[in-house]
């Protein structure tokens, strides 16, 4: 929000302030939702998937609205894209967990 060409009026501010409260309320509802689906759904996989979807939405909202990433210029996106890519590269290693030869069944219970 660095380009403040015109000075915003008091009305603009109170509108913005109201939007922030509403946004926050939305985030809270999201968290309440992910809590309740874990009580409602029986399958672990489905509540993990749904829970992650809700979390992703909340994160996106925080990033783009609360952290006003939507108003930033392209250069930030350039390095955030790489960051996200490398983070996923990091997650790739979990794939290796299943093929880990050091995970011996023989030890798992005595």
């Amino acid at each position: 929000m660095s380009e403040e060409t015109t000075t915003p009026s008091a009305a603009d501010f109170s509108k913005q302030s109201r939007q922030i409260w509403l946004g926050g309320l939305g985030l809270m509802i999201g968290s309440a939702l992910s809590c309740s689906i874990f009580n409602l759904l029986s399958s672990t996989t489905s509540h993990i998937v749904l829970g992650l979807l809700i979390a992703a939405t909340q994160v996106a909202f925080q990033l783009f609205v609360f952290m006003h990433l939507k108003n930033e210029r392209g250069i930030v996106y350039k390095f955030l894209v790489f960051t996200v890519f490398f983070t996923f590269a990091l997650f790739f290693l979990t794939h290796l967990a299943q093929s880990s030869p050091l995970h011996f069944d023989a030890f798992s219970s005595k």
């Binding site: 990091l90 979990t94 798992s108």
Partner: peptide, 16 residues
Amino acid sequence: GGLFSAYIFLRLASDT
């Protein structure tokens, strides 16, 4: 990201 990746890794590789 590293921590979460470690979490998933450990959870999938857990033998208990």
